[in-house]
Amino acid sequence: MSRKNSPRPRPAAVTETSPCPCGLEATYGDCCGGFHRGTGTAPTAERLMRSRFSAFAVHDAAYLLRTWHPATRPEEIDFDPRLRWTRLEILGTTGGTAFHTEGTVEFRAHYAVRGEEGSQHENSRFARVDGAWVYVDAME
């Protein structure tokens, strides 16, 4: 059973010098780790999507809640300790750049649970709130 919204250390598999879970060619510390620490904000909707995937991989509930649109944000996030996020594929984007206020990111997030592999496919909507990109919801 996981503790709700309590600070948790990153799973041991991801360190500041590990490859970033988001799939970009950088270390976690130089990539999504900076966003998670609050030393920067994602410049595009795609980078926010990547940083949120990494936040799920390292169990950073505070970052996920901070980057969720206030109108759709849940009160808390529970992580399944058996689930491990393994890889992110970005399938397409619309808008979501420095010149936009809205955007979408279609992705496939791969995971493993007790040795069984699976994936989640989603087309997510993003918007800017006070100048920062936030996740709104999944398009249907």
Rank of each mutant, 00 (worst) to 15 (best):
A132W: 01
T104P: 01
D80C: 10
G92A: 12
R125S: 12
A62R: 15
L24E: 14
E106T: 15
Y135V: 06
N5M: 06
T97N: 01
G92Y: 10
P81Y: 11
R82G: 00
R108M: 05
T44P: 03
T101G: 13
A112Y: 00
R82V: 08
S6Q: 15
H121A: 10
T67C: 02
A45D: 02
E102M: 10
A71S: 14
G33D: 07
M1T: 13
T101P: 00
G92V: 02
V113D: 05
T17A: 15
R84Q: 14
T72K: 11
R10N: 11
H36F: 06
H121P: 00
S2D: 12
R125N: 07
R108V: 11
E46D: 13
D80T: 04
D30F: 08
E76L: 04
A138C: 06
A45V: 01
F35P: 01
A71L: 12
R10Y: 05
I90R: 07
L65T: 05
G23R: 09
G131I: 03
F35I: 00
V129Y: 03
A13E: 13
V129K: 14
K4F: 08
D137H: 14
W68E: 07
G96A: 09
Y135W: 05
K4P: 01
F79R: 07
A109P: 03
R125T: 01
P19V: 00
V136N: 07
L88P: 00
H59W: 13
H100C: 14
M139E: 14
E76P: 02
E46W: 04
T93D: 05
W133N: 10
L65V: 09
D78I: 12
G33E: 05
M139D: 11
G115I: 02
V134R: 14
P43Y: 07
R37K: 14
W68I: 00
P21N: 06
P81G: 08
P81I: 11
R50F: 06
E75F: 04
R84S: 08
P19N: 02
A57I: 04
G38N: 12
G103W: 12
D80Q: 01
Y111H: 04
E76V: 08
A12L: 10
F56L: 09
R87Y: 06
T41S: 14
G95E: 08
L64Y: 11
F35M: 09
V14S: 06
G92T: 06
N5Q: 11
F126C: 08
R114C: 00
F35Y: 15
L83R: 15
R50Q: 12
Q120W: 09
S124P: 00
G96P: 02
G33K: 07
T93I: 14
S2G: 09
V113R: 15
R50S: 08
E116I: 04
H100Q: 09
G40E: 09
G92L: 12
L83K: 15
F53Q: 08
